[in-house]
Design a protein around this nucleic acid. Structure first.
Length: 234
DNA sequence: GCGACAG
DNA sequence: ATCTTGTCGC
């Protein structure tokens, strides 16, 4: 059931938390993906000492070419005044509005989206990837570089090895993500379902999109575009 | 009260 | 996230 109306993004922390608790109940964790032909990557960067929020989205063709390279189908960037400071747990209210605007500039639509941040691996099970997934009504996966919440062991050393990220105790204990070794010898990434897919499927897609670096291609390329590292060179 | 804390 | 040069390693 797609969400048809957008809520107010300028909320007090308490109101934002209450809203997250309600929206979390709408997250679908069962696989519901259309045949994948395009995968989008999303990330946010900042300009002018944080005054400007810069949302970047890249759309890559799936599957990648025989050599392993992903074809860049389209890119979009949207800049706007930063609306609120970074508050752990409330990241989506700072980044999702600009991201939605960037998506509106696309002429092609993806069937899957990877977001730089957490999916359900969040205190109220509604990280940026999940929140964005609800608004786009698309399957989303959260790929974060560090942990927000949950406990976990050390994943194995090989690419693809992962350890469960669990949160809660007793009857409330649940697996909320995977601490994935995306490359030998590097700190693992935190993968969690955003919307419309389960953990195993999310991990499989991230692994399938890994190139030669720590981050999967969709997120890595979006990161470069958001931080202007693709042209900013010196 | 004392830590922890995505980007 | 961002401010920033060189440097160690495959």
């Amino acid at each position: 059931m797609p969400i048809t109306s957008l809520h107010d993004w300028n909320l007090t922390p308490d109101e934002a938390i209450a809203l997250q608790q309600r929206l979390a109940g709408r997250i679908e964790r069962e696989d519901r993906l259309d045949p994948v032909r395009r995968i989008a990557g999303v990330d946010i960067g900042f300009e002018q000492a944080g005054e400007i929020t810069r949302a970047a989205v890249v759309v890559l063709a799936w599957p990648p070419a025989p050599g392993g390279a992903f074809e860049m189908v389209e890119q979009a960037v949207h800049r706007e005044p930063t609306r609120m400071p970074y508050i752990p747990g409330l990241l989506s209210f700072r980044e999702v509005p600009a991201t939605l605007a960037a998506f509106e500039r696309l002429t092609t639509w993806p069937e899957l989206v990877m977001v730089d941040g957490q999916g359900i691996a969040h205190p109220r099970r509604l990280g940026v990837a999940s929140h964005l997934g609800l608004w786009l009504d698309l399957p989303t996966i959260g790929v974060a570089k560090s942990r927000l919440c949950g406990r976990h062991g050390e994943p194995g050393p090989e690419r693809g090895d992962w350890a469960a990220l669990v949160d809660g105790w007793g009857e409330h204990e649940e697996v909320i993500g995977a601490v994935l070794r995306s490359r030998r010898g590097v700190k693992p990434v935190f993968v969690s379902p955003g919307h419309r897919l389960c953990l195993e499927t999310a991990v499989a897609w991230v692994v399938a999109c890994l190139g030669k670096t720590k981050l999967p291609e969709p997120t890595r390329l979006a990161d470069r575009l958001a931080s202007r590292r693709d042209q900013k060179r010196r």
